[in-house]
Design a protein around this nucleic acid. Structure first.
Length: 414
DNA sequence: TGTCCACTGGAAGGGAGGGCTT
DNA sequence: AAGCCCTCCCTTCCAGTGGACA
């Protein structure tokens, strides 16, 4: 029987999610954050001075990915906005993610524009001298005259990219204002990034430090229970499934984001299969899917020359050999470049690309000496060659290499 | 013990591209 | 618009190296 439309069969299958499936997405902010009560309290203790219209200390928050840093800060931000109505204080919290807002100009521009309502007066994306953006921003905050708390998420990325200039400017902005005050909350994955800061900036930025430790498996279970209750229909996810998700994420340094993602994808796989319940095998399928997606994304975003190197290694394994030396890879690589009419890079550069891919975990490279026959890197793929070849050949420019085989160590066969 | 291979990996610098500044 | 500056990607040059072999 012909279906009414292409969606009908899938609609009939129904869903395992409740309408609020967003509770299993990374940017969801729940009403309750299990096992972060003390961190929330500590932050509230520091920031409460803002509700009394006094400037709170600057804070630096450390912790690995998925330890709830951003969630806690956003949670406190939401509570702060509620509380300021009660106590009638003029405090603003402005959240900026330094992954996207990553230059001194864009940070000052974002802050300034937050206080400029008229569209004609807004500071443009580019074009103004930095000191003009600085003075306009300063003027606007000062006219407003309250306590401004700037949250710089992933501040380590900002510092490694543009140095500590902007942090210095923010501290300067605070000291040059007459009516308003400005505090900074920096959030960082990297404990060591303060080494890059000027000592004066470091001491002022880290007046208060908060360290978020990774969640253990039991804590992750509680978090997953909480989210599953909101997002998934009752009885779909059993305790065993939650335990496995938590255990897997706990092994990978207690990343709650990963645990939640794992649960969501497990439910999606079960749903697509038409299953009424999530089973443990769905979790392992989800784990494989996430890992493969991750690797495939890493390979797809590689520069073209690195992809050709991976192809050289894949062809080598396909021909039954398991490793290559730098010189051998370089020969195959040059032949592949010639084949697609591309100019090849120097061996020195290739040596660096090999080291980069080694760091990414896509290949294993180690320096080995063959005595009289020289000293070189020995390289092999860290992943199944069939997968690597498939992903690499998805690149439009490399498609035509699909039928290439390796004849001998260095000769290609078409 | 010295030689020598096949690189490794540091240093310096070129040039393209993009953003800031005037 | 033009100049300046920075970053990224890459090349060129070269001293240094572990260990088999004579």
């Amino acid at each position: 029987m012909r279906e009414a439309n292409i969606f009908e069969r899938h609609m009939r299958r129904g869903t395992l999610f409740k309408p609020r499936r967003e509770a299993l997405y990374p940017d969801y902010l729940p009403d309750y954050l299990p096992h972060r009560e003390s961190e929330i309290d500590k932050l509230a203790e520091i920031l409460v001075t803002a509700l009394r219209d006094e400037k709170p200390s600057n804070i630096l928050i450390y912790g690995k990915t998925g330890t709830g840093k951003t969630a806690v800060v956003r949670y406190v931000e939401r509570e702060m906005k509620r509380a300021r109505e009660v106590y009638d204080s003029s405090v603003e919290m402005l959240y900026l993610n330094c992954e996207t807002v990553d230059t001194p100009y864009s940070i000052l521009q974002n802050i300034g524009n937050y206080f400029i309502e008229n569209w004609n007066e807004k500071i443009p994306f580019t074009g103004w001298p930095l000191d003009k953006v600085f003075s306009v921003t300063q003027e606007k905050i000062d006219i407003w005259g309250g306590i401004l708390i700037i949250v710089l998420d992933e501040v380590d990325k900002l510092v490694t990219k543009s140095g500590d200039d902007i942090l210095y400017q923010l501290l300067l902005l605070d000291s040059e204002m007459k009516n308003a005050n400005l505090s900074v909350i920096g959030i960082s994955n990297e404990l060591k990034f303060t080494d890059l800061l000027d000592p004066r900036v470091r001491s002022r930025l880290t007046q208060e430090k908060l360290i978020f430790t990774p969640y253990n498996a039991y804590q992750l279970e509680d978090i997953l229970q909480e989210r599953a209750k909101i997002a998934v229909k009752d009885g779909v996810v059993g305790e065993d499934v939650i335990s496995v998700c938590a255990a897997i994420a706990a092994q990978e340094h207690g990343d709650a984001r990963r645990a939640i993602e794992l649960l969501r994808i497990s439910v999606e796989i079960a749903e697509r299969e038409g299953s009424e319940k999530v089973e443990i095998r769905h979790v392992y399928q989800a784990k494989n899917k996430i890992e493969m997606d991750c690797v495939s994304e890493a390979i797809k975003t590689l520069p073209l020359h690195s992809k050709i190197l991976l192809l050289a290694l894949a062809l080598n394994e396909e021909a039954g050999r398991n490793y290559l030396t730098t010189g051998e890879i370089y020969e195959i690589y040059r032949n592949l470049c010639k084949r697609i009419g591309m100019t090849h890079l120097t061996q020195r550069r290739i040596s660096d690309l090999i080291s980069e891919m080694d760091m990414l975990g896509l290949i294993n490279a180690s320096v080995k000496s063959f005595g009289r026959y020289g000293r070189t890197k020995v390289v092999e793929l860290a992943l199944p060659y069939i997968e690597v070849k498939k992903i690499v050949l998805q690149d439009e420019l490399l498609e035509e290499l699909g039928n290439v085989k390796l004849q001998s160590q260095r000769k290609l066969f078409f």
